[in-house]
Design a protein around this nucleic acid. Structure first.
Length: 232
DNA sequence: ATGGTAGCAGAGCTA
């Protein structure tokens, strides 16, 4: 699962990935956004934008069914700052995501929603909750929107298995945030609750935030037991 | 105190 490709599909290394054995679902966009799903099994019923055919100008969500579990890759708008037009757009986008997930859970569809949520939910998810209080990524309205998603019946897989580890996934490029561990946990894997028992291992790979030209995010790696996807 | 860094694209916007 990838977000923030910042390129059109022709610039994404799909061929190399396919040679390495991955199926690729890509929704690219010039300069901004962009999402992709890689898999070792065939995706079924893929869609992007919004599921009922509603179009979207921004490449922020791509999904497909993999062996009976629908996987949604999301790049939630950053929101820039509380009170801006971009923040309003973020809140509206989260409303649509809520409705989309609600429809799927109503049909008992097993789902996994992973990506950059651009929201830190609790004090444990933030290096300095006082500094971040009421700021974009940590405002009450954003936290409430994320809580509404979870209340539909989803589990935050990392937090459920690591109740006291911060598990930061993002550190600003500025001010030496990574070496100081001034991070936030904003990249999440939310799942239908029955999938929690199927988690073999889940962790943040901090090594991806090191080295030459790293992303400002580190990936959350989740390994499921084979029983989670019986048809694979 | 409104900085600071990075990517894309080729200046300024977004994060």
């Amino acid at each position: 699962m990838f977000t923030g490709l910042k390129c059109t599909e022709d610039k994404f290394p799909a061929e190399a990935l396919q040679k390495a054995g991955y199926r690729t679902l890509i929704w690219g966009q010039k300069t901004y956004n962009g999402v992709a799903l890689l898999s070792k099994v065939d995706p079924q019923h893929p869609w992007k934008g919004w599921p009922e055919g509603e179009s979207s100008d921004e490449a922020r969500i791509i999904a497909a069914d993999f062996g009976g579990v629908e996987v949604l890759c999301v790049y939630v708008p950053n929101g820039q700052a509380v009170g801006t037009d971009k923040f309003d757009f973020k809140m509206k986008w989260l409303g649509k995501l809520h409705e989309t997930i609600h429809q799927r859970l109503k049909k008992n569809q097993a789902i996994l929603i992973c990506g950059d949520f651009n929201i830190a939910q609790s004090d444990l998810d933030v290096h300095d909750p006082q500094q971040w209080k009421d700021q974009c990524l940590f405002s009450d309205s954003e936290k409430k929107a994320l809580n509404r998603l979870l209340e539909l019946g989803l589990v935050d897989l990392y937090r459920a298995t690591h109740p006291s580890e911060p598990g930061f996934t993002w550190w600003d490029y500025r001010s030496g945030a990574f070496p100081r561990n001034h991070g936030l946990r904003i990249d999440l894997i939310l799942a239908s609750s029955h999938l929690l028992d199927q988690v073999e291992d889940i962790y943040v790979d901090r090594n991806e935030r090191k080295g030459e030209k790293p992303s400002d995010h580190a990936p959350v790696i989740c390994v499921f037991k084979a029983a989670a996807f019986p048809s694979w």
